[in-house]
Write a protein that binds this DNA or RNA. Structure first.
Length: 961
DNA sequence: ACCGCCGGGTGCC
DNA sequence: ACCGCCGGGTGCC
């Protein structure tokens, strides 16, 4: 694992200068090695403290790493050490080597560490002034089952782990090693409820908006709302200001981290960037665009060319089949796009045609020569460099011309300024001023949104080079990419390129932006690695929901932001994750501080100075009860009684969970009865007398497929959220693939289904396609019939049209087939509508949304929307009325759907109507929804520990059993 | 390292 | 003295 090259320490000559020089170089690889090792280590969750041990660090005089009183140090095995293959290296938090563990102790520890029997951590409480050795308090952490092995192993070599006394902890507040000794009162433990509560509120109340507001650069055509100016100001400050990162403070000549007690002469590398976690609809995209244009180097706006002719704003150079642009709204934009696409290959050729205007004319470096561009090529850039005073300007210039100057710049910098220079003017010293480009990563579904927003918000006369790095023909030239102002790509493209001489990883970006950053979560995933490997001076995460499930998810974000030292898993685990999961109040506080320092989050409801952040139009939600006709009622009752009998039988037999799929199928049929009789699948799903258990199982799985295929928004019993990437288990239960993978991962061979405790195996999981269209059978319009719910909807729509024909509506159902049924009466009454569901291609989606959002008088007034389609980020503000045809299990899913039109940009008051059939499962579903919501509001996620019983109770309540 | 350990010098009191 | 003692050289793994 560790390359031999850092045997550097073994050289005896110890000439200090030479040594420090090489040391500097090696420190890089060393900390990388530590990081690599640490990222593989298991989670700190569930570790127990085996005990403490007093040890000795030796060889201090050979290394430059220093430690402070109370400082935490890292222990790294060094199996390649030529003197002792048991060697254990001691390093401080920046990965600077401090010394080694004394030989005999190292020999004992090596076995424990190599076999992953325990994680050994060290804190130095005293003796930091010694120049040869120092005492070190070691603590051993690991899985309970390894405790005795470890203790015996250590004892055999004469080291007794000390479990009793709390002497081990130092006076320092980090209480390292003390948190297991709760009885000593050193740590105040939180109850699980408190913990959950605090955690859920982690992102609340973060914004104090002391930053004031900042005007966007001239190139931003859209006036920013006050809260967006605040965000811009905050983001600029985070990129430019030299404020110390969290937990660091100045102590005399040194910078000191009060969490780890680490100190350094140099100012700690601050995080240039952070998390913008505003609610959706508050304009994260616009703010980010403003940031790109407003805050280039030295706080000056991005130098952009201005064109005489006003036609095209942001021109995305896109490959021909690029979604949004093809049927692009404005012809002008189209034309420009094509030109650019053509020019993309032979970069810059068209540039000399446009006048170059120095936006940042005030920039000091411009003093050199202000005359217009010298020669065609140079006209492309803002700064003529006749007598450039510093080399980086040369590089800046070169890079701006499209060269990748990164390697050169590194060398030049080295010679120009000694590495050890303590530069007090921190502002830009660490920068590579040649970096120009902002890289934006996002899920495929929001690409078109970015392109649209660039087009919409960048002034028409400004030429911003935006390149969509997507599709087979994408331009992989680093020179080309780093000459752009903005490069947009998807996470998938990034991970596809990763490891495959990815140009994206070869560029030192000015800025890397992760949109919907919470999608990058699992550190093991290739995508995460690809993201973490990106080089960028400034780093941003945009996310409406920064925490999905747990503290663990946060690590990925901090690692991306390079928030030292927590980007290394070991320190994250030691200082934050383990304390928090073990309920340590101080740990939680630290986490809160951490998050607070780097995050801006406002919700739609947030207020600033007593005034709402955004004046949102009002939202009114009402339930419209629907009476079934007599014949519908009869059919429903028939089905209900039958279902009730079946489920009642399962209840008395205690086999509800084993027949869960069947239960769901019964429920869904009842729900379908409530909507429309023709929704009921013709394929008979009677269980009949199943011959063998295998057959039985097959049928159950089949039923579950049927439930999912109908579009129903089912719940995953692991994350308790709507199921994403559904997979069906052998025992016919459905979970999110990642959720169940986690269960299998943690339970190993003995993994069992969380619902029925049957054994589950990864290879037996059945995939279910995200949104599968059922074959459109028996939708013969001739045989079309209505239903009470259809009537109720049509009544509303017709009334609305009389009142105001310009109002647009969303008609939402979980059942895509219901949407199909609804098409007939809509056509009949002359409504113009579009349909949006999960089966649409990306290209189609953009097209449909554009069509719907377009204010054209003869445009569609209704969108038939499948509940789960599209995910976050859809902008449907053209609609102001929402009709939910059927209730969902998960109220949040409905909320999300409403948010697509009740968001920034909505000008009308929003009315939401939920159709609920009186005296039916639907009513019961709504009751349960409400209960869940109350629960959430009261005890914030004090989740029922036994999902099985609560699920059972729900089912009984639904069937009135 | 104000230690321990090594090995050479040395050797009554 | 095949010892003890002294004092200089030396020192992570």
């Amino acid at each position: 694992m560790f390359p031999g090259r850092w045997r550097f320490g073994s050289d005896r000559h110890g000439e200090v200068d030479l040594f420090t020089d090489r040391y500097d170089l090696s420190a890089e690889t060393l900390s990388q090695a530590i990081r690599a090792a640490a990222s593989e280590e298991p989670d700190a969750d569930g570790s127990v403290l085996f005990g403490h041990l007093q040890g000795t660090v030796v060889g201090l005089r050979y290394y430059s790493g220093v430690v402070n009183q109370g400082e935490m140090v890292g222990l790294v095995r060094q199996p390649q050490n030529q003197y002792d293959r048991n060697a254990v290296m001691v390093a401080n938090i920046y990965g600077n080597q401090v010394g080694h563990i004394k030989r005999e102790l190292a020999a004992a520890m090596a076995h424990v560490m190599d076999n992953n029997l325990a994680k050994v951590e060290g804190v130095v409480h005293s003796g930091t002034k010694n120049s040869f050795t120092m005492p070190l308090m070691l603590s051993f952490w690991g899985k309970e089952e390894n405790q005795n092995t470890v203790k015996e192993n250590m004892a055999r070599r004469g080291f007794k782990l000390n479990t009793g006394g709390g002497k081990a902890t130092g006076a320092n507040q980090n209480s390292q090693g003390a948190r297991a000794l709760s009885k000593k009162g050193v740590t105040i433990l939180l109850t699980p409820d408190e913990l959950k509560n605090a955690f859920d509120n982690l992102f609340d109340g973060l914004m104090e908006s002391e930053d004031g507001e900042k005007q966007a650069a001239e190139a931003v055509g859209t006036p920013l709302l006050p809260h967006q100016k605040q965000a811009l100001s905050w983001m600029c400050a985070r990129e430019n200001k030299s404020a110390l990162p969290p937990f660091w403070e100045r102590r005399g000549e040194l910078y000191y981290n009060r969490l780890t007690c680490f100190s350094a002469k140099e100012i700690p590398e601050r995080v240039r960037g952070g998390i913008l976690a505003d609610d959706m609809g508050l304009g994260k995209t616009l703010t980010t665009i403003a940031l790109i244009l407003t805050n280039f180097h030295k706080g000056k706006p991005l130098p952009v060319e201005k064109c005489e002719e006003p036609p095209s704003p942001a021109k995305a150079k896109t490959k021909p089949e690029k979604p949004s642009r093809v049927e692009g709204s404005s012809s002008a934009g189209d034309g420009a796009g094509v030109t650019d696409a053509a020019a993309a290959g032979s970069k810059h050729t068209n540039i000399s045609q446009v006048e170059v205007i120095c936006v940042d004319s005030a920039d000091e470096v411009d003093k050199s020569d202000k005359s217009t561009g010298k020669g065609k090529k140079k006209a492309a850039k803002r700064k003529p460099v006749k007598e450039a005073p510093k080399c980086f300007e040369d590089l800046d210039f070169a890079a701006a011309l499209g060269g990748s100057a990164a390697p050169t710049s590194l060398k030049k910098k080295k010679t120009a300024t000694p590495t050890t220079s303590v530069d007090s003017s921190i502002t830009e010293s660490a920068d590579d001023l040649s970096a120009r480009t902002t890289l934006i990563l996002c899920p495929l579904s929001v690409i078109s949104n970015w392109l649209d927003q660039f087009e919409q918000h960048v002034r028409a006369n400004v030429k911003l080079n935006v390149y969509l790095y997507y599709g087979a023909e994408r331009n992989r030239s680093k020179a080309f990419l780093s000459s752009q102002d903005v490069v947009i790509t998807t996470y998938n493209v990034l991970s596809a390129d990763f490891g495959n001489k990815s140009p994206l990883h070869g560029i030192n970006w000015l800025r890397v932006v992760l949109d919907e950053g919470h999608v990058v979560r699992n550190p093991q995933a290739q995508m995460s690695k690809a993201v973490l490997d990106l080089k960028g001076q400034r780093r941003w995460i945009l996310s409406g929901t920064p925490i999905q499930n747990s503290v663990k998810d946060l690590w990925m974000l901090l690692a991306f932001l390079r928030l030292k030292p927590f980007d290394a898993r070991e320190w994250w685990n030691r200082v934050i994750q383990r304390p928090v999961t073990q309920g340590d109040r101080a740990g939680l506080q630290n986490l809160q501080t951490l998050v607070k320092c780097i995050t801006l989050r406002r919700t739609k409801g947030s207020e600033v100075n007593g005034r709402p952040l955004v004046a949102m139009p009002e939202k009114t939600v009402c339930v419209e009860q629907v009476e079934l006709s007599q014949s519908e009622r009869e059919e429903y009752e028939l089905a209900r009684n039958e279902g009730r009998n079946t489920i009642g039988r399962y209840v008395t037999e205690g086999t509800v969970l084993r027949n869960y799929a069947d239960v769901l199928a019964i429920l869904i049929r009842l729900r379908q009865h409530c909507c429309h009789p023709d929704l009921l699948s013709k394929t008979s799903l009677d269980l009949g007398a199943a011959a063998t258990p295998a057959e039985m199982r097959e049928r159950l799985i089949e039923k579950l497929r049927f439930v999912l295929a109908s579009g129903s928004d089912e719940e995953c019993s692991v994350c308790l959220d709507s199921v994403r990437l559904p997979v069906i288990t052998h025992c016919a239960h459905v979970y999110c693939r990642p959720c169940i993978a986690q269960v299998i991962g943690t339970e190993q061979e003995t993994a069992r289904c969380p619902l029925c405790r049957s054994e589950i195996k990864t290879n037996e999981l059945v995939e279910f396609p995200q949104e599968e269209m059922e074959e459109e059978k028996n939708t013969n319009p001739d045989k079309w019939r209505t239903s009470s719910k259809v009537q109720a909807l049509m009544g509303n729509l017709l009334r609305l049209r009389c009142e105001d024909s310009s109002i647009k509506c969303l008609v939402v159902s979980q059942f895509t087939r219901f949407l199909t049924i609804l098409e007939t009466p809509l056509r009949e009454h002359g409504f113009s509508f579009v349909r949006f569901d999960g089966t649409l291609s990306q290209k189609k989606r953009t097209q449909v949304i554009q069509e719907f959002q377009s204010p054209a008088a003869d445009g569609p007034v209704i969108m038939l929307l499948s509940l789960k389609a599209g995910g976050v980020g859809l902008n449907l503000t053209a609609a102001s009325h929402v009709y939910f045809m059927d209730p969902a299990w998960n109220p949040a899913t409905e909320e999300q759907c409403i948010d697509r039109c009740h968001r920034l940009g909505q000008t009308r008051n929003v009315f939401v109507t939920k159709f609920i059939v009186k005296g039916s499962v639907e009513e019961n579903m709504v009751k349960i929804q409400k209960q869940k919501q109350d629960l959430v509001e009261k005890a914030f996620g004090c989740r029922n520990p036994d999902r099985k019983t609560s699920r059972m109770d729900e089912i009984k309540a639904l069937m009135e059993l």
